[in-house]
Design a protein around this nucleic acid. Structure first.
Length: 574
RNA sequence: CGGCGAUUAGCGCAGUUUGGUAGCGCACUUGGUUUGGGUCCAAGGGGUCGCAGGUUCAAAUCCUGCAUCGCCGACCA
């Protein structure tokens, strides 16, 4: 490719709405342009990278025995009604009507469509197990799109679905997919971790996420210092403290706190250390037979955070978890948030394990502008349950029993699930078993955020000059940069000759034939992240030499012109 | 969905307080100059100042409404 006939589209200045480095560099390097919030056009060099990711994904999926197919983006509403997700998925499901006013959805994922396909096409246990996949555009009307293609409303995803007769068979395929995912991220040269995950809106039992480690990641991951244990923080269990609760040593006391409504206020104005107090969060309980929801109090230590996913797993707590409205709280307790506590509270009380081993602690007195000190469980509050409610924090013991937890941030680029029969049962997808009887299939599903990987890879591979692509992802393998070609007789000849020889050798080469100053060309090639640049200049031509620069290492290598093509091709292919 | 902010040329921004017929840098076009790390000089093209309505002799500027985009929040009582 010649730059004069290409859309390089590099930018000197950073567009003001790009927050994270990958978004900035993708815009500056001319990979993407925004069309509207969360919607991006891929320019030629961006698309090249995207296709490289797809290619690696395809090869590894094929190797793992999956079969590629392609399903529509537009999906009829009745399939979603059948699975129950037309209601459940919420506003993230972008809905449209056709000209006959029939409802459709733009597919955020394809469990419904694939299950419908398989129930029609697969009739016998002899055809199982089978794993099908596609690389396709997904649509999710995100609450808050951000970070460019990292969290977009339209994005490219590889989604695979497997169908089985038994749980054991599913577990085997799941393991094979897990391995395929490791192979993919390995080949892409990413620093990644598989972590134990929650199943979220997709459903199922066992699940792992694959995270690319990056400061800008939207997820927190807890790692053991001693073992392979890694889990999304929303899933990591906070173990019960091993030490016993100290004896009560203080009397229950009430003190005025007119200005203190938060844990931070209590610390600033009354010297109460956050870990010596608790916070009491009021949420709605599970509806009773009349569809009425009562209130439930959740108590965590002042310096801890409530984990909503854990809380909503408690049978008394409504799912999805919803914080009680202020007027409902006042109606039930007679006090406003900021002065709430477990003492004398007339509703179910669920206490986090760490809060349950506190003694002589501080909490709101359920009277505006008052707090209690010297509170003790079983003496001052008798009716309560203990449950894991909080997010783990750095330094907590690892749930695996080995080591302590460290917390890092990650970008979720893959997620695999053992779904079980959630969809196959709802949609009546079965096959005839060996015994001649109908049997519901067991399913797994496996997703990779293809377009997100492009951004995640940049988060991990950049410097002050731009992107530093790994071999597997670079849009071009080599750039030819001739110095002041238009002023020289020899340089155009040599550049053209080398260019065609590299093409002949099958290399993806970008020939910068613009009439630009050397600095402009170097900067553009470095911004775009081309791994190798071949510099052709008068200076070295007298010695019959050209110079090869390595983008990642900065290394420079002088090569004889006549050996350059063979040597460089060998190096890049190695 | 709530709070805050922004919207002026392809990009980055000034001008808005105090109303008077729109500007800077980059990019683009032309000519010259320079040439191994974003040259310099000159000339030029490009804007219904987000949209709609209002106030006024006069609106980018003041008022009202709407839209779009972004940030923060949507547990921390």
């Amino acid at each position: 490719m010649r730059t004069s006939q290409y859309i390089l589209a590099t930018l000197k200045e950073t567009p003001s709405d790009a927050e994270i480095i990958s978004h900035q560099l993708m815009l500056r390097a001319g990979m993407i342009r925004k069309l509207a919030s969360g919607l991006y056009t891929w320019l030629p060099s961006g698309l090249k990278v995207l296709r490289k990711v797809e290619q690696v994904v395809r090869e590894e999926m094929d190797k793992a025995g999956a079969i590629e197919m392609l399903m529509p983006v537009i999906q009829p509403a009745d399939l979603w009604q059948e699975s129950g997700r037309w209601e459940q998925f919420g506003p993230e499901l972008l809905r449209i009507n056709d000209r006959h006013n029939r409802p459709f959805a733009l597919g955020p994922t394809h469990e419904e469509v694939i299950t419908d396909f398989v129930r029609k096409e697969i009739n016998s246990y002899k055809q199982l197990p089978i794993t099908l996949y596609q690389v396709q555009t997904k649509v999710r009307d995100e609450v808050r799109p951000r970070f460019g293609v990292m969290r977009a409303r339209e994005f490219t995803m590889k989604d695979a679905y497997s169908f089985h007769l038994t749980e054991e068979c599913l577990a085997q395929t799941y393991q094979r997919m897990h391995q395929a995912y490791c192979n993919i991220f390995e080949r892409l040269g990413l620093d990644y971790r598989p972590v134990i995950a929650d199943t979220g809106s997709i459903g199922g039992s066992v699940s792992h996420e694959f995270h690319v480690l990056a400061e800008s990641g939207e997820d927190a991951i807890a790692f053991s210092s001693e073992s392979d244990y890694a889990a999304n923080i929303e899933k990591a269990e906070a173990l019960a403290p091993t030490e016993a609760r100290p004896e009560a040593s203080k009397e229950l006391n009430t003190f005025a706190t007119p200005e203190a409504k938060t844990i931070a206020d209590l610390k600033a104005k009354h010297g109460v250390k956050p870990h010596r107090g608790v916070k009491t969060l009021i949420v709605y309980g599970t509806p009773d037979e009349n569809e009425q929801r009562g209130l439930v109090a959740l108590v965590v230590r002042g310096d801890h955070e409530l984990n909503e996913l854990k809380a909503e797993k408690h049978t008394l707590v409504d799912s999805p978890l919803e914080m009680a409205k202020e007027e409902d709280i006042f109606a039930a307790i007679g006090a406003h948030p900021g002065s709430l506590g477990p003492v004398g509270l007339n509703m179910p009380i669920i206490v986090d394990r760490s809060a349950a081993v506190m003694a002589d602690f501080v909490a709101g007195a359920n009277n505006n502008g008052e707090h209690h000190s010297g509170i003790n469980w079983d003496r001052d509050v008798t009716d309560y349950q203990v449950f894991d409610l909080r997010n783990v924090v750095e330094g907590d013991p690892s749930p695996c029993g080995n080591g302590i937890l460290q917390i890092k941030r990650g970008v979720e680029v893959g997620h695999i699930f053992q779904l079980g029969t959630k969809y196959s049962e709802a949609m009546n997808a079965g096959v005839l078993g060996e015994n001649g009887k109908n049997q519901v299939m067991t399913m797994g599903c496996y997703g990779i955020g293809v377009s997100r990987i492009v951004a995640a890879a940049i988060e991990q591979n950049n410097d002050d000059y731009g992107i530093k692509w790994t071999k597997a992802l670079a849009p071009f393998e080599l750039a030819i940069v001739p110095m002041n070609m238009h002023k020289s007789h020899r340089i155009p000849d040599i550049a053209e000759r080398l260019y065609s020889e590299f093409k002949q050798a099958g290399l993806e080469v970008l020939f910068d034939d613009r009439k630009e100053r050397p600095g402009v060309m170097f900067n553009d090639m470095e911004l775009l992240g081309v791994p190798y640049t071949l510099v052709i200049g008068e200076r070295n031509l007298d010695n019959n030499q050209v110079e090869l620069k390595n983008r990642r290492t900065g290394e420079k290598l002088m090569l004889d012109i006549n050996e350059a093509v063979a040597a460089i091709t060998a190096q890049i292919r190695s």
